[in-house]
Design a binder for these strands. Structure first.
Lengths: 309, 309
DNA sequence: CTGAAAGCGCTAACAG
DNA sequence: CTGTTAGCGCTTTCAG
């Protein structure tokens, strides 16, 4: 049936007969059980409504399909408990590997995952997984530097969870840009919340209430930036004259003519594709896998939420 | 191990021992093979980057997880061949059921699916599946009626694939609204393309070039409306004074202060939840299942791309 | 209440 | 080249 080298007449007959018999479908489950290959990978992301993750997911799904794999997609809503549950489920389903963007610190994952896995936006110091990401520090740097070059001086950092890996990296880049330009770091200008629009809105409100002299905001991601823009719009703050805003990710909505958000581009789709190829390599290499650390380059996209220079 | 009524001492000991032994994980595959219950459903949607589908997917994923099911998500990019391939894969994986938004006419699906399935936005005349959708005809009607009430008279219909079920329904509602208000139907004003932003842009361009007197556009979905708005913006057309635009879906970006798109709301998340519950019911009921046809109500959301009345 | 045995649908490793 | 057999890791059934 699985056409290896074989007969010619007999086989063909059988095939025809089988095909007839009310649509025979080979039972993958049985096959997986005996070959110990599920041809399935697990994918865990925090938020499918954020186009950033949606596009990564798209890249993952497509690449997996091309490589003959199916993907089990799980979304955690940034809930660590759910994340744990999903990992357990996936392992019981005998996925061959997992691609995960952790809700929190990835260090804790080490214990709970016994399957090969690659982390999206995480480090792999001392650990047994590969990871793929964009150079977040550089992204934070070029975004902030651009604000400075546009003449903004009191620049706030409005980010996601304080100790999230990507947030820390971007923040580091932000600080470096400030330092290089002799702008004193003001810790009060560093705010953190969630990686969503609502949080962007609230944080902008708080920040500008507490420090009315803020004239620039570097956002942890585009979705937050949208929230910041929302607040600014509502508060009658003129963008980009009174306030410069830069985001991170370059989601498709950032380029809408009504938005024109200056932002730091990430190759999202590619990140997804690379994640599965890296994972598949790791799986193939088995125990003696060489851990990979894939870092893509971000890119500054100048649009209209920052002044022209 | 699966704690039924049993021992007390002996069992506990075993459990402890097993737990110790380098993390024992029950093999779901084997269990599924013998119980013939995979606790898995398949989900096939055309486009995960469209927030409409992303939110439906979210509803599906969450509800499935709550009900103890895992979901295999497949995205087709509106490619019928891929859709077929995914259906085959899912059946070989022995999913218990499939939730699908078909790329094309769902009539053709009948032959290829041998598993219980529910269709998102499709009819179930003479067929063996349930379906869940919003009242698309009504949606088309209230959207168009609103344009008329705002004083627009030359209203174009810019939709997706001509013979897609949801498109046909919405178009029907559009025609009914026109007829009820004694506005002559002009077939030249009915355009169709793809359900994406680019197509909205192109269609708006064509429509307005061919018929400069158009003063209103009813769009097949919000993503297309965004494209229409993009073109209008670029062509210097004043919205809503010179041109009224209404969308369909109410994706989150429609409510952004920079967009404020008037649109027809769909309970997307709920649609997803209901789809899985309907499917699970159908699975449970087995052969004697009573087919369901679940129709939710759309709602007009007036924002700023149509004139105030 | 517990242990042993059968079998889910397939593949792999054998002989014929 | 074919047919047979064993067994993947579990659940279920049936004795002990």
């Amino acid at each position: 049936m699985s056409n290896k080298e074989g007969v010619s007449k007999e086989t063909r007959k059988k095939v025809l007969k089988e095909a007839k018999r009310i649509g025979y479908r080979p039972n993958q489950l049985a096959r997986e059980l005996v070959t110990k290959q599920s041809n399935t990978i697990g994918v865990i992301i925090p938020d499918i409504l954020n186009p950033f993750f949606a596009e990564i997911a798209k890249g993952i799904l497509e690449e997996a399909s091309i490589k003959g794999y199916t993907a089990l997609l799980c979304v955690t809503n940034w809930d660590v408990q759910l994340e744990k549950k999903y990992i357990k489920n996936l392992e019981e389903k005998r996925v061959e590997g997992i691609i995960i963007k952790p809700c929190e610190d990835e260090q804790k994952l080490e214990d709970s995952i016994n399957t090969p896995y690659v982390i999206l936006e995480g480090n792999n110091v001392n650990s047994a997984h590969s990871c793929v990401e964009v150079d977040n520090e550089k992204g934070g740097y070029i975004g902030t530097k651009h604000l400075i070059e546009c003449g903004y001086r009191k620049i706030a950092y409005v980010g996601g969870k304080k100790y999230a890996y990507s947030n820390e990296k971007r923040l580091k880049g932000y600080k470096r840009a400030l330092a290089e330009n002799n702008i004193d770091l003001d810790e009060n200008l560093i705010l953190s919340g969630e990686f969503d629009s609502k949080s962007g809105y609230e944080l902008a409100k708080t920040a500008l209430a507490d420090n009315p002299h803020i004239d620039g905001i570097f956002c942890g991601n585009d979705v937050m930036a949208l929230g910041v823009l929302h607040y600014a719009n509502q508060a009658g703050i003129n963008i980009p004259e009174e306030l410069g805003v830069v985001g991170f990710d370059d989601i498709s909505y950032a380029s809408l003519p009504q938005i024109e958000l200056t932002t730091v581009y990430q190759p999202k789709y590619n990140l997804g594709k690379l994640a599965v190829n890296t994972l598949l390599d790791d799986i193939k290499e088995g125990k003696e896998k060489t851990l990979k650390r894939i870092i893509l380059q971000p890119d500054l996209i100048k649009r209209k939420t920052t002044r022209k220079i």
